[in-house]
């Protein structure tokens, strides 16, 4: 199929899957922020999510598919691009490209590793079990998600890994959020610099929003 082999087709698939993944991280962030609404809020939220039953599994399957497409083409395109430009210049000055744009494949791979770790941690509870065991205690009849999160992030190692991963996300989105606009063809020239600025701003919002959660537990504000 042309869409999965052509240069633009694969970029479009990356942009669309990237955008849907951004949709996910918006919803996920809003859910996570309920941790600031008291001990009970995130437990209620988690219970609601789990009560959705089959919907949760459909959702997980869709996420897996999005990741698979995004990562497959990401790696494929990056490999093709490095074979297309084999010889380095003795001196090369990059003029407007950014660290973000040049490290997409690296920040992407970091995110992949992080997602696996994150699932092993908070979804499957197989790492840091001393903290995740809290989930087995019921508070007001609900699994105690709040304590699991708190106990985890009070460990400096765990918090720092999470915060580092959010920096990878920040750099990935710093390029990705304006890149998809161009890939999907919404650039008329004058709009370009504004789109780039908004993309970076939104990446900062994600960084602050997500990194704040481990941070507050790490420094003991919460």
């Amino acid at each position: 199929m042309h869409l999965t082999t052509s240069t633009v087709g694969r970029k479009v698939l990356m942009a669309v899957t990237g955008l849907l993944l951004v949709g996910f991280i918006i919803v996920h962030l809003l859910g996570n922020l309920s941790i600031f609404a008291g001990t009970e809020a995130i437990n209620i939220y988690a219970e609601k999510l789990h009560s959705l039953g089959p919907v949760v599994w459909i959702f997980r399957a869709v996420m897996l598919a999005l990741f698979a497409v995004h990562i497959t083409f990401g790696i494929q395109l990056s490999m093709e691009n490095s074979t297309a430009s084999p010889e380095a210049y003795a001196i090369k000055k990059r003029q407007i490209t950014t660290f973000s744009a040049e490290s997409m494949i690296y920040t992407g791979v970091i995110l992949l590793v992080f997602v696996v770790y994150h699932l092993l941690h908070f979804t499957m509870h197989v790492v840091h079990t001393d903290a995740t065991d809290a989930i087995n205690t019921l508070v007001n009849g609900r699994p105690d998600v709040y304590s699991m999160v708190k106990l985890s992030f009070e460990k400096a190692f765990v918090s720092l890994v999470y915060i580092a991963a959010m920096f990878a996300l920040f750099f990935h989105l710093g390029h990705g959020l304006s890149s998809f606009v161009q890939t999907l063809g919404f650039n008329n020239g004058p709009s370009q610099s504004k789109v780039i600025a908004v993309g970076k701003l939104v990446a900062v919002v994600f960084l602050i929003g997500y990194a704040m959660i481990p941070f507050v537990f790490l420094v003991g504000i919460k």
Partner: peptide, 12 residues
């Protein structure tokens, strides 16, 4: 040739 990843170095 490689695939475009929107670096915009070309325009410069």
């Amino acid at each position: 040739f490689g695939n475009c990843t929107n670096h915009y170095e070309c325009q410069e």
